[in-house]
Write a protein that binds this DNA or RNA. Structure first.
Lengths: 390, 390
DNA sequence: GCGGCTTAGTCCATTATCAAACAAAGTTCC
DNA sequence: GGAACTTTGTTTGATAATGGACTAAGCCGC
């Protein structure tokens, strides 16, 4: 029976999902493994796999290595059975990418887009760039676009899916990105906060053995994404991880856009640092320029970055005590600055209980530039291969 | 077939658990409901229920009210099929109780026990008091004791189950409470942090529709328990919720037992307040006396309690921004003081993002004196009726 | 290079589950 | 008060999953 590519995804049965899950995550890659991992009987596995192969979702990809007996026939998800568009909207730069059904990044590109141009214009440009990326390779365009997953630099309501009160996205308040982009593209759209997606991306492509992780995105703004028990945690309204307006301990009362004083965002965000440098008379266009300046041993830039790291670490100390994660990932543009990361580390260790930190790993992302896109892809695929479907 | 009481719990099958779950939580109380809730077919439900009735775990308890057709025959968990001992160890007072298999508190009592007497002495007294409570009513003693669930006022490692670095339990560091008490009692023992158990107790007996809750136990010390996605969250090492040594924003640098300055525990815990009152020349024996003083409009006690509430609220503001819970419960002895709770409320609302608070309920516990015991019972029963078993 | 051992995967009778029809018990409304 | 409709629960033939025996394929040691 020749396996054809599935034209559309009928929602999978619970049993098929039980098989696709381990195959997707790499927890199993043969029928024997699947039987062990899922607890289903070998005969059931055979039947389900036959069906999935017939449907075009799974393929046999050759023999594995023997573990002392007959060697297994390795199975794999049909990664070319579709393609997913990924978008990481930033304040002045947007990344787009394509992932296959295994979640691997096939292509990516960057767009200089000013987010304050508003939803309609930005999303139209994003879609035409995605179409161009799809057309750039006949391999890609042959595959069916299953949908697009978008990350935005602001809070996303978990009920409505709308962007809510985004301080860095003027003109986007209340925007239903899924409806607008879905209207142009005609495929399912998922929308999430960008830091949340980065957390997912880093979790999926990094250490999956640690189920409790916090990903800090320190860029022009500061936010974080939370992985609890191996799943993205968004809180009751979808606002979890928004630490922009947490008060920094022992910090000067700098006024913040939220109307209060001494918020993390007003003190340690890339935006705040650039502003402060400019006030000090230095010519820095953006956060990247500031980091470059610090790399060239500019004393003011270096001091500011270290202090920002320290303040961020002070806030994260509370969070680490409260949440007790096993892994803390410091990402975002600022994490390219060693001084910043060092500041985070030192203050965090100084202010945390030993019990909270002695098993804590603090790292930077494995793929700093890609984890947002990878997370977008993962979130989409997790949903596609879930009971909920799309 | 006469249903006899089951002598022991064979571990339940996944399918039986799917039925026991809704019966236990009250999500279903008839075969028709169960079919709807579990998604299993009515015939399967009939077969499983027959088995569970035969095993003595479920009983028919009469007819329900009609909803426009034949009236359902209501089913219920056999709550008298066993009994669970619950212990809430405190620094100078310990509560004990008995719950039936539905989690309802059947009896309770309090012991004046100084926790610094050490594990062996304290646990021996606890066990003899539990035995006395069991013997106090022939109804209770007839039921089989399935195990004991213990809450301790200190961190419990999620790997080893041992008490780790407990600042308020001198002589208990590294103690394996389950082994010691299990050795005397000869039944399975579960051990958890007390604030965690209170969070579970309040969640189980309170608003179960809100899956993300934070319970703050403000007593002689300050800790909290976290419910994430409807389940207790303990973090990677079991230390989640330990906010004792979180730095209070804008607070005086009072030295703390942890070696740093300005920790919540050193500033706003019942212990800290009593000490400060004593330093001010007032004669207060303990936290209860201080609260009574404030109730009698003593200006110093009142001011201290309000400030403590405000500082606690300041720390909780960060946590609410980060975790975005739908419900925050302020419990522990200090929550009996209206001034304290008012301080928490006002500072929290002042320092949180509107998005994090506009759907947030802040309350005191429904049953302030019982939620620790109820939580202990719930944790034990959840484990008993889980795939893991005991 | 050939039995004995281990692992992988299939076949088949037994068992559990399902969907649909049916029976039981009540409500509603003319 | 009785016909039509609702909800609850059981029965039954069809379907799907299971466990165990069986075949396939490769490793190991002598």
């Amino acid at each position: 029976m020749a396996s054809r590519l599935p034209a559309s995804f009928t929602r999978f049965s619970a049993q098929n999902l039980a098989i696709l899950g381990p195959l997707r995550s790499g927890a199993a890659d043969s029928k024997a493994d699947l039987a062990k991992v899922t607890g289903l009987s070998p005969s059931t596995i055979t039947a389900r796999i036959d069906e999935l192969i017939g449907l075009g979702h799974v393929v046999e990809v050759g023999d594995g290595v023997s573990r002392g007996g007959r060697r297994p026939r390795t199975l794999a998800l049909r990664r070319d059975a579709g393609i997913v568009g990924c978008v990481d909207l930033g304040v002045d730069r947007t990344s787009i990418g394509l992932v296959d059904l295994s979640g691997a990044l096939l292509a990516r590109g960057d767009l200089d887009l000013d987010i304050s141009s508003g939803p309609d214009l930005v999303l139209a440009e994003v879609w035409s760039a995605l179409k161009a990326l799809l057309a750039s390779d006949s391999e890609h365009s042959r595959r069916l676009l299953r949908g697009v997953s978008v990350g935005v630099p602001g809070p996303v309501s978990s009920e409505s899916g709308r962007v809510v009160a985004p301080s860095r996205m003027p003109g986007w308040n209340g925007t239903d990105v899924a409806r607008i982009l879905g209207g142009i593209a005609g495929v399912p759209i998922l929308v999430n906060n960008d830091a949340n997606l980065m957390a997912v991306g880093e979790f999926a492509s990094g250490d999956r053995t640690e189920p409790n992780q916090v990903f800090v995105k320190a860029g022009s703004g500061i936010g974080c994404g939370i992985i609890a028990r191996g799943e993205l945690f968004v809180g009751s309204r979808g606002a979890a991880g928004d630490i922009s307006h947490v008060a920094v301990p022992d910090a000067p009362p700098v006024p913040c856009s939220c109307g209060r004083y001494g918020c993390l965002d007003a003190l340690a965000s890339g935006n705040a640092l650039v502003r402060e440098l400019q006030n000090a008379g230095l010519e820095v266009a953006n956060v990247e320029a500031m980091i470059a300046l610090a790399r060239d041993a500019d004393p003011v830039a270096t001091r500011l970055l270290r202090e920002a790291g320290s303040m961020t670490g002070g806030v994260l100390a509370s969070i680490v005590n409260f949440f007790n994660p096993g892994r803390l990932i410091v990402g975002g543009v600022l994490s390219q600055s060693e001084v910043f990361v060092a500041g985070v580390r030192s203050t965090l260790y100084a202010q945390c209980l030993p019990m909270a930190t002695d098993q804590l790993t603090i790292t930077t992302p494995l793929r700093p530039g890609d984890c947002g896109l990878l997370g977008a892809g993962t979130v989409f695929l997790d949903r596609l291969f879930s009971e909920q479907g799309l």
